[in-house]
Computed example of a mutant assay.
Amino acid sequence: MAQLFSPAADTWMRLFLVGSLSLMAGGTVGIIGFARSAYMTSTDVRPQQPVPFSHRHHAGELGIDCRYCHSNVERGPQAGLPPTETCMTCHSQIWTNASVLEPVRQSLAHQTPVEWTRVAKLPDYVYFRHDIHIAKGVGCSDCHGRIDKMALTYRAKPFTMEFCLDCHRDPAPRLRPPEHVTDMAWTPPADAGAKGEAIAAHERIRFGELTHCTVCHR
């Protein structure tokens, strides 16, 4: 009886199966890695801005509180960008003729806002409010990183669904007292979980409901 396959056929078949499985596994890992890459999540990207504003200088070196410029962060869904008048509160006295601040002076003269490029932007299908997070004890640095050390602002956290759910599943260790919400240098205590649970109880945070779809998608 004639032999249909050569003696090496089994070897080639095994190599083919191993190669196919390896390619599938490698492709899956590659896709997941690409989805989490800085390119896709826009992390560590410093977009061109009309003025090279430095949070490191203003928030870090000068110690200006976040709420001085982002005045709506405790009262509404968006933190808000400072109007030109806020910038000129200081810059009408210092760096008055600096060329780098010409767009700010023109903004004030023509009563038109400075067109900043947003860094911390969420998709339109995501429902998010700054005020509720601030009120419950979520610190600015938890989502924005050590922005007080950024010479040019960039997105420090990926803002993916996984990132949000990790916190919503167990927010207690991340909660902090209200006086430390804007404190960039705050570090959780050794008993962060227990203290966070006390804050959550006081603020009536309903743990079991934080991962419901309608919390973030309405």
Rank of each mutant, 00 (worst) to 15 (best):
A38T: 15
P50T: 12
R36V: 03
V138N: 05
I31A: 13
D65Y: 01
V181L: 07
S141H: 13
A8N: 01
N72K: 11
P50A: 10
L101M: 10
A190Y: 11
H57W: 07
V119E: 04
C216T: 06
G139L: 01
D142T: 15
H168D: 07
T214E: 13
H133W: 10
H110C: 04
C66R: 01
R36L: 14
V45H: 14
F128S: 08
R56T: 10
A109W: 02
T41F: 13
T187M: 05
P113L: 00
Y68W: 01
R67F: 07
H70E: 07
P83N: 04
F207Q: 02
F159M: 09
P171N: 11
R75I: 15
S92C: 09
Q3Y: 02
H168C: 12
V126A: 02
Y127E: 09
D183V: 06
G33K: 11
T214K: 08
K157I: 13
T89D: 04
D166Y: 02
H55M: 04
P50E: 03
E102V: 04
G208I: 00
V29Q: 14
H212C: 06
L122N: 09
H133Y: 08
A8F: 08
T117Q: 01
G30Q: 15
K121M: 09
L152W: 13
F16V: 13
P123T: 00
L21T: 15
I132K: 06
F34D: 14
I134Q: 02
Y68C: 06
Q49K: 09
A109V: 05
P52G: 14
G208E: 00
V215T: 08
R75V: 12
A172S: 08
P171E: 05
S6D: 03
H58A: 13
A185G: 13
W12C: 03
A109M: 06
V215I: 11
V51C: 14
D170W: 12
G30N: 04
R36H: 09
V215N: 05
P83Y: 00
M184V: 14
T43H: 15
W116R: 05
K136P: 01
Y125K: 07
Q3A: 14
D166L: 07
K149Q: 04
T112K: 05
T187A: 04
H144P: 03
H70Q: 05
M184R: 13
F163P: 00
N97I: 09
C69T: 14
T89R: 05
V181E: 02
S37R: 01
C164I: 14
A172Q: 04
A98F: 07
H212V: 06
P7M: 02
H70M: 13
V126E: 08
V126Q: 11
I132S: 08
R105F: 02
L21D: 05
F53L: 12
R105P: 01
A2D: 12
Q111S: 03
F34R: 08
R169S: 07
S71D: 07
T153Y: 00
S71H: 08
A9T: 11
G26N: 07
I132W: 02
H130A: 15
H202L: 02
A120C: 01
Q106H: 04
E115P: 01
H168T: 12
D131Q: 11
Q49P: 10
G30E: 00
R105E: 06
S37M: 06
R14G: 13
P113E: 00
T86Y: 09
T214V: 11
A120E: 00
C90R: 10
F128V: 07
D65P: 03
A156C: 15
G76W: 00
T211Y: 01
H133R: 10
